[in-house]
Amino acid sequence: MTAAELSVMTLWAATTLYAIAMIAGAIHVSALAEVAPEERGSVRTRARGIARATTLVGLVMHAVGLVARGIEAGHTPWSNMYEYTITGSFVAVLVYMIFTRKRDGSWLGPLVTGLATIALGLGLAVLYGQSTGLRPALQSYWLVIHVSIAIISTGVFAVGFLIVVLQLLQKRRELDPERYTGRVWRMVAVAPDQKTLSSYAYRLHAVGFVLWTFTVMSGALWAEDAWGRFWGWDPKEVWSFVIWVIYAAYLHARATTGLNKAAPWIAIAGFVALIMNFTVVNYVFQGLHTYAGNS
């Protein structure tokens, strides 16, 4: 078996495991939704065990798939959209694992594994491309630094995004708990209250923002070496800047009483821009970064 085959195989395995984890996790949450909040801590369903085990094994498979891809390509696997997707989803699951080390993250599990399933599945089915050599402009240690931090912050922002969406739902439910009593809303009720979610989201976005700041800066350093200018308003640079500014606005909104209400929406806008940056911007806009596409 070649490294390429091994990579694709283990990544499909990870996709499947995440899908199982998502379903099992959702079953567990819906079981939690039916018991009183005080007793949730002691509920240990079978589904919970399955979700935890499949997530962990999925993550290991995912890691093997990434390493095999790197061996196949002969470099760190971060040079096109496919590689960006499989690595970014890995980071999201890893962030989740770290998040749940100290606290119970049952409520977050199905969301993260669901996101990872979609990202990996899309990556393998739509974006997959044979790895090629790196163009001279990409042969730089800045690639490793710049792109790895970009991917890590994307993974962190992705988890932050999920929490922010949940926060909005939770807030809505809390304002009128009598009205929102359907099954899904009861599952939402399993998550921490709106304020706690908001502070989790803030902490993740704070980490993401520092990493993104570093991404933009290291990108500028790389551009200085590769293209002879540290900033040139190339479409990719424009969007990195836009993302940075939006998340700065989110942090400002979070830090100001009276503007708190707007914060989750700004965070969502930031994530939309992040997704735009590596989909539409890659495919549609011409620029020096075009190798990031899937040629």
Binding site: V245, A249, A273
Partner: peptide, 19 residues
Amino acid sequence: MRVALVLLLVLAIAAIPGS
């Protein structure tokens, strides 16, 4: 702070046409 926030968002939107 409110105006700073609005200016940040306006800056983000204003940068987009250039891409």
